[in-house]
Computed example of a mutant assay.
Amino acid sequence: MSIGNSPEDERPFEDGRSSDGHEEEARPSVGRALQQARIAAGLTVDDVSSATRVRIAIVHAIEADDFTPCGGDVYARGHIRTLAKAVHTDPAPLLARYDDDHGGRPAPTPAAPLFEAERIRPERRGPNWTAAMVAAIVAVVGFVGFTAFKGGDSDSDAASQVTQGASPSASKPAAPKPSTTTATPKSDPSDSAIAAAPQDKVTVQVSAVDGRSWISAKDHNGRMLFDGLLKKGESKTFQDSSKVNLILGDAGVIQLYVNGKKIEDDFQPGAVERLTYTKGDPEVG
């Protein structure tokens, strides 16, 4: 626990007055209500940040009724809902109060500007050496098989000539023509292949079915797999040996398939969701 960050140090004044001596409003603001609920639950800002993965600076700003770091009304409402659940209070009155103070409930907005501080440029991917190696192996195996077949055919022709002797009337059996096979290049996994996800890996498919949303995906080492805007109708598939971490900027427009199974969570429009899936899911990690 951080020094100077205990719930007791943040309790409101007992006489109902603020630090400047003025009386508090009858109904506390959104930030003050979240702060009071957190203190009543015996939680520190560090505890809430760890439970929700919302940065400490943003938690402090929201409790001070400063929603600028959230990146807009849609995401401010998502943070309010997340923090309210963490401190065991009903988010509905807080969201209504926020909407009253900020001109009503906002329409969903593009999520691209969200979490600029967390965004990392995607790693530059090198050449696909795996595909090149597979193609080379297929070519070598095909050449060796064709050579062995031709060699066996020549030996059978010689044996036939020795058996039949020099008789001109003996008919030589027609040698079967070698069948040639064309190696087809390996293609990317289809949706049906994704549905039959391997048991030794975690496979997550993200589809923007009802709109567009910014998404971020990382593997178990924290390496960025994707970071950007997923347009309506687009899909992305991520696979890792043990874990995939997701951030959904507007979870309400997203449909998830984890290890071949559809996730039935009722994500709300405009809600920011941070999810972790492992090989044993579709339960949330």
Rank of each mutant, 00 (worst) to 15 (best):
T147K: 03
V204A: 00
V202H: 01
A174D: 11
A196T: 12
P178Y: 08
S192K: 13
S169Y: 14
S169P: 00
S154E: 15
S171N: 04
T163H: 09
D153R: 13
A159Y: 12
D155M: 13
A158Q: 10
S171E: 15
A148N: 08
P173F: 07
Q161K: 13
D188G: 08
S160K: 09
V209Q: 02
A183Y: 12
A193K: 12
P198W: 10
P168G: 13
S192F: 06
V144S: 02
I194P: 05
A174R: 07
S154W: 09
T147V: 02
S179V: 06
S207T: 07
T182V: 10
A183L: 01
A175E: 13
P185R: 12
V202T: 07
K186H: 12
Q161W: 05
A166N: 15
G211S: 03
P198A: 05
A148I: 04
F143Q: 04
T184G: 10
D153Y: 07
I194W: 11
D200T: 13
R212C: 04
V144M: 04
V209L: 06
G211C: 05
P168W: 14
A195T: 10
P176G: 15
V209T: 08
A166V: 07
S154A: 11
K150R: 14
Q161Y: 05
T203M: 01
S160T: 13
S156M: 13
S171M: 11
P178L: 12
V202C: 01
D191V: 11
A195C: 00
K150I: 01
K150H: 03
D188N: 11
A159S: 13
T203F: 00
T182L: 02
T180S: 09
V206Q: 01
V144W: 05
V202I: 06
A159F: 11
S156F: 09
V144F: 02
V144Q: 03
D200E: 05
K177N: 12
V206G: 03
P185G: 05
T184K: 07
A196I: 06
V144C: 01
I194A: 11
S167A: 13
D200A: 10
V206M: 00
G145S: 04
K172Y: 09
T163N: 04
T180F: 15
K172G: 05
P176L: 15
Q199F: 08
A175G: 08
A166H: 14
T147G: 02
P185E: 14
S190H: 10
K186L: 12
K186M: 08
F149H: 14
P189W: 03
D191T: 12
S187Y: 04
V202D: 01
S207N: 02
T184L: 04
T180I: 04
T163Q: 10
A208C: 01
D157S: 10
T184Q: 07
G152E: 14
A166I: 06
A159I: 11
S192L: 13
S192I: 10
S187H: 12
S192G: 10
K186A: 13
V206N: 00
A170I: 07
K172W: 06
S169F: 10
T181S: 08
S154Y: 11
D200C: 03
A159V: 06
V206P: 02
T147F: 00
A170W: 09
S171Y: 11
S171A: 15
A208V: 03
A195M: 02
T180H: 09
P198K: 07
D210W: 08
P173D: 08
A195G: 06
Q199P: 05
K150Q: 12
D153I: 05
A193T: 09
